[in-house]
């Protein structure tokens, strides 16, 4: 956007193993969210290649990207991004509408997932009637409805208190244990305890943990 090209990511070359719990650490402006959006097919690289499960995202058209997002990826955002006019139950079921799943099946699956995140009692509540932690749980349930192989979370604990944040972290760890690939972008160091892989970003470049720690200390 705009006329000046900003290199949010520069020369990043990395591989994320399947079924890993990868944590991407970096300060604001390091390009970690850009990395997540590129991996989720929400943004396109101006140069370079992105390959997920053998599919080249950089070569897909808009329609193919939409199908990729629908089938392969579940997004979790810092600000939850729930639709305020819909109940928790409707928010969870919403992605299935685009997948053409029938209404009874949507209801069944949405209730099942709400139960899994411990919110079956709150299914008829609207987002503004739920706490931050509960809203993020609804968002996680929504990310899971199409049974994606890859969960991408952008600062999932950023807007939550410590206890709610912990509970969300455990929920993500649980998803990883169930065999999904989880990638979390954060600057919360607590998240690294669940990580099987860590990536450190500084000014759009991948750096070692040492270099990162040093830069943070400085």
């Amino acid at each position: 956007m705009g006329k000046t090209l900003v290199r949010a990511l520069d020369g990043v070359d990395l591989e994320i193993p399947e079924k890993s719990f990868t944590v991407v650490m970096g300060p604001s402006g390091s390009g970690k969210s850009t990395l997540l959006y590129l991996l989720g097919g929400l943004d396109r690289p101006s140069a370079g290649q992105i390959e997920i499960n053998g599919a080249r995202l950089d070569q897909m058209d808009e329609n193919q990207l939409a199908h990729f997002r629908r089938k392969t990826v579940g997004f979790i955002f810092q600000s939850f991004n729930l639709i305020q006019s819909m109940t928790a139950h409707e928010n969870v079921g919403f992605p299935m509408q685009f997948a053409g799943i029938s209404s009874p099946e949507r209801d069944r699956r949405a209730l099942q997932l709400l139960a899994r995140v411990g919110l079956e009692e709150r299914s008829r509540h609207k987002p503004n009637e739920l706490s931050g932690g509960q809203q993020q749980r609804v968002a996680i349930a929504r990310a899971l409805v199409n049974n994606p192989a890859l969960i991408l979370a952008d600062e999932p604990t950023g807007n939550l208190d410590t206890s709610s944040g912990n509970s969300i972290m455990h929920l993500l760890a649980e998803l990883h244990q169930q065999g999904r690939t989880v990638l979390v972008v954060t600057h919360d160091p607590r998240m690294t305890r669940f990580a099987t892989h860590k990536i450190f970003l500084l000014d759009g470049k991948v750096v070692t943990e040492q270099a990162y720690q040093q830069a943070v200390l400085e």
Binding site: N81, I83, F94
Partner: peptide, 16 residues
């Protein structure tokens, strides 16, 4: 606008 972004993130096509 954010709602449109969300719809696309959860799999809505341009046509949807």
């Amino acid at each position: 606008t954010r709602e449109i972004g969300l719809m696309k993130a959860i799999g809505a096509t341009n046509r949807d």
